[in-house]
Amino acid sequence: MIDHARDLEAVREATDRLLSATGGTDDAFLAGASRLPGWSRGHVLAHVSRNADALVNVLRGRPMYANSETRDADIERDGPRPIEEQLADLRDSGAAFLAAAAAPADWSRTVALRNGVTDSASRIPFRRWVEVELHHVDLGAGYELEDLPEEFVVRENDFLAERFAGHPGVVPTTAVTEDGRIWTTGGGADGPAVTVRGSATDILGWLCGRRDGSALTAEGGSLPALPPL
């Protein structure tokens, strides 16, 4: 069962880690390349801030973004800002999300996201947690997948395995860790079933597109190529 209140506390902690990590940096740091192609670190932080605004919209029953063009334009506009503006925006937008999520609400209701995707309102705090944690890693500033909380790694693997389940481009795939955790995904493409073995962290890196899977072993076929998130 999803505990949205517990997830909100995890969001708060993850946001504090991100603010602490970036608080001692400068404009040159933000102008440097992130691990996301074509984005500076400033673009990454701008995206995290605008995602907070977008999820407030979701919780209040409004469209997540006006449209894709506006979403992209806002990130391009905000990416080059100086460090003081970025940190203030990250802090204020994050606080606004937490405040909106703290309001009494029916957490069992269905909410609309982007591109026709819907979800339970109770999973919105976890989605925000994902944005903050993975984009912290994307900064390439010392916070790695191995630094992510164990609970987060397991739950995000659950989420991504579910997302790719039945995908027409992915053969039936079972991911197994050394300690016996198992995730099944794919199944929509013809081909032999594949078993992928490795650590939960390396499986996450593969599932979320942050690593090439070279640390994993595949049995029964090659490591499946996953579609972009």
Rank of each mutant, 00 (worst) to 15 (best):
residue 83 I to Q: 10
residue 110 T to G: 04
residue 96 A to T: 06
residue 97 F to H: 01
residue 122 S to P: 06
residue 55 L to A: 02
residue 94 G to H: 03
residue 70 T to G: 04
residue 65 Y to V: 09
residue 129 W to Q: 06
residue 123 R to Q: 11
residue 103 A to Q: 15
residue 141 A to D: 14
residue 84 E to R: 14
residue 90 L to S: 05
residue 115 N to R: 13
residue 66 A to C: 01
residue 127 R to F: 14
residue 84 E to D: 15
residue 136 H to S: 13
residue 81 R to I: 09
residue 108 S to I: 00
residue 89 D to A: 14
residue 143 Y to P: 15
residue 141 A to E: 10
residue 66 A to W: 00
residue 130 V to S: 11
residue 139 L to S: 08
residue 74 D to T: 07
residue 58 V to M: 02
residue 68 S to D: 15
residue 58 V to E: 00
residue 102 A to I: 05
residue 124 I to E: 07
residue 103 A to T: 13
residue 92 D to C: 06
residue 106 D to Q: 07
residue 134 L to T: 06
residue 77 R to H: 13
residue 55 L to Y: 15
residue 76 E to Q: 06
residue 101 A to I: 01
residue 128 R to F: 14
residue 84 E to W: 12
residue 76 E to R: 11
residue 128 R to E: 11
residue 103 A to K: 10
residue 53 D to H: 04
residue 53 D to W: 03
residue 96 A to R: 15
residue 118 T to P: 00
residue 130 V to P: 04
residue 126 F to N: 01
residue 118 T to Y: 08
residue 129 W to T: 01
residue 100 A to Y: 03
residue 79 G to T: 04
residue 88 A to G: 01
residue 81 R to W: 15
residue 132 V to H: 03
residue 54 A to F: 08
residue 78 D to N: 12
residue 103 A to H: 08
residue 75 I to W: 02
residue 66 A to M: 06
residue 81 R to H: 13
residue 75 I to N: 01
residue 124 I to H: 02
residue 59 L to P: 02
residue 55 L to C: 05
residue 142 G to D: 09
residue 110 T to W: 10
residue 117 V to L: 11
residue 112 A to C: 07
residue 72 D to M: 03
residue 92 D to Q: 13
residue 55 L to W: 02
residue 100 A to T: 02
residue 61 G to I: 10
residue 82 P to H: 10
residue 87 L to K: 03
residue 131 E to D: 13
residue 59 L to R: 05
residue 86 Q to E: 12
residue 142 G to L: 03
residue 113 L to D: 03
residue 73 A to D: 06
residue 121 A to M: 11
residue 102 A to N: 13
residue 134 L to E: 09
